[in-house]
Write a protein that binds this DNA or RNA. Structure first.
Lengths: 144, 144
DNA sequence: ACAAATTACCCACTTTTACCCACTAAGCGC
DNA sequence: GCGCTTAGTGGGTAAAAGTGGGTAATTTGT
């Protein structure tokens, strides 16, 4: 289970260091270090899936009629961007330019746990998102 | 059951000493010293949960539709910030910079019991909150 | 097929964290 | 009051995490 929020720096080569706690979860709960990274279609961030979770997502998409316009759009945005990454000995992956651009990533990068996936954000974008999420919750009557 | 208010100092390394009475409650009522600390979304403080109480919260959140905007905001602010902490031999935990910043913590830190969780405040912020809470209660018709 | 660019892999360094030990101050009983 | 216990605090050290960079392998383009 991915939880917690970590900030790491992308280096000049475009390599991203997956936070150690997330690597632990991958190893312990999924028995392999590989992740799939794809666009998150509704926010300007990337989402990382353990292989198993990604397959589950594919199955769900496959169950829907393939002429559904939403399904088509989903395939074009998310599935097309998805790629497998094998972290190096230091636990880093090289994210391609297109995805970096999509998430507006430059250097400081936030990794945010999201139960069975985790999100990858540019630090500034993450802060902005956080501020607006907090504002939204401010007036809510939360019962948990 | 967490009750009472205690003030401890965060040291230069960012370590926070959990007040002994709270550690006792964790050990006696929950049989383990581990806590989850996360943002409190509506006030500038952190909230510490025994594992069992945290799981209860997760269950409540999971029972709500995941496309609910409030639920999404809650996940991004609270769940993402949640992390497990294992106090050291002296009963201290190291709180990361992001959470310290969120709660405006510098040195003097207040721990306030809140039945099945407890709150962690910067001492100054706690005083301000206390004043306004008292003001709110002034005109109320309390029947307990 | 060859040169240039990109990527993967490895090694080394720096910073941070976890763990342990020790000291001080505050209560408590005798 | 004196010694004991317990809570709180400070700091050293070894391991782990994060970061930077070199080089070989691979890919790409011509």
């Amino acid at each position: 289970m991915f939880q917690g929020e970590y900030t790491n720096n992308m280096d000049d080569k475009g390599r991203l260091n997956i936070p150690a706690p997330f690597r632990d979860v991958l190893q312990r709960n999924y028995n392999e270090p590989t992740i799939i990274v794809a666009r998150d279609p509704q926010t300007a961030c990337l989402r990382a899936y353990p292989l198993q979770e990604w397959k589950r997502l594919l199955a769900k998409v496959g169950a829907r009629p393939s002429n559904d316009r939403v399904v088509q759009a989903f395939k074009r945005t998310v599935i097309s961007s998805a790629q497998e990454y094998h972290p190096d000995k230091q636990g880093r992956v090289l994210i391609p330019q297109t995805l970096r651009t999509y998430a507006g990533m430059s250097k400081a990068t936030v990794f945010a746990g999201s139960v069975n996936t985790f999100e990858i954000w540019d630090a500034k974008a993450w802060d902005a998102q956080l501020t607006s999420s907090l504002a939204l919750l401010q007036d809510q009557d939360l019962d948990f």
